[in-house]
Amino acid sequence: MVFFDLGSTLEPTKNKELEESYDVIIIGGGPAGMTAGVYAARGGLKTLIIEKASEGGQIVLTEEVENYPGFLKITGGDLAQRFAKQAEHFGCDITMGEVRNVELCCDNKFVILDSGKKIKTNVIIVATGASHKKLGVPGEKELANRGVSYCAICDGAFFRDKHVSVIGGGNSAIEEAIYLSQMASKVTVIHRRDKLRADKIIQDRAFDNPRIEFKWDTVVKEIKGENKVQSLTVQNVKTGVQEEMSVDGVFIYIGLQPQTVLFENLLRLTSDGFIKVNKDTLETSVPGVFAAGDVIEKEIRQIINAAADGAIASSMAIKKYF
């Protein structure tokens, strides 16, 4: 498992002094944000992409991507770097930072960063994506980073030869269970139904894996441990029977929640917090503010359609406002 990642060259544009104003500010540097950047810059717009953690967003947290067209197999990190390089190549400014506030009224909008810097723009594209949904059970917060994790490739190394549980039944849960089985002595997938939602090809790989076992019709009621995860209280949803399960770690992959706290009173959102947009233009309830990627109200959330959203949002912004 020894590998050497070359990383991307730290381009001079990153973290360089920001301008006072841009034509478009894209909040979020994942596939949606980066693609929006490519289209905006190529369309002649002065473009800024703001990313708070790492370029690539969620895809950086996955080892392998097999279903992005054009690539039989590529690591999430590699794909993310390609997106970023392309955006930079066409002239986007990219900066690392967190957005504290936005002022959305009128033709001149403002984005205020945590550092206090206030930047003017005509158009904003919200591509803040989603983060892992929490279970919301006792012990989850208390033991966060002490055996409770939402990222297998980040934290899997701490569970070599240990027993871990993975909560969830979709692609992410099963793919990460397969990843963890390389290190852990045992992986127990705990799912509240009696069948998985994951793609068949992924399911089959998991079923064939001798280190992965399944606990069906089961939910987690509590995560327990002193200073670190030691056990789970689980309950069978069909019989109601509860039992204690000894585990060293719990990896939670039960879905995504949108990162829209900032926009709660500014944009129209669904009851779950996803941004409501016009299906054709991806414009939000505020003129001049568009949204793209996992953060919008949609059925399917994949890299490919996040990227597509980015392209559409920029193209429609150009059409309408420039």
Partner: peptide, 10 residues
């Protein structure tokens, strides 16, 4: 950090 952690280099 760990070697497989992508958020770690920054």
């Amino acid at each position: 950090v760990t070697p497989t952690c992508p958020h770690c280099p920054p």
